[in-house]
Amino acid sequence: MMRRLAAMGLYRGAAITKTSSQPFRGPVSVQVGNTEVALGFGLARRVMVEVPG
C-alpha cells in the first residue's frame, strides 16, 4: 500500500492539502503537487500529517 501511495506522489515527506471530505466516513481527497487523489476514510486516517509552521 505504501508503494501504491508513493506511486501517486504520496511518499514520506510529501506536502499535501486536503481538498474535500465526504460525510459519514466517506472518502477524503487531497492535492499532492498537481495531482488530486481520493482516499477511502480508513486509508486517509492512517496518513500522518504535520502542519507546517
Binding site: R4, L5, A38, L39, G40
Partner: peptide, 10 residues
C-alpha cells in the same frame, strides 16, 4: 471491498 484510491483528473 477495498477502499477507494484513485487519481481525480482535472
Amino acid at each position: 471491498s477495498p477502499e477507494i484510491f484513485i487519481e481525480i483528473p482535472p
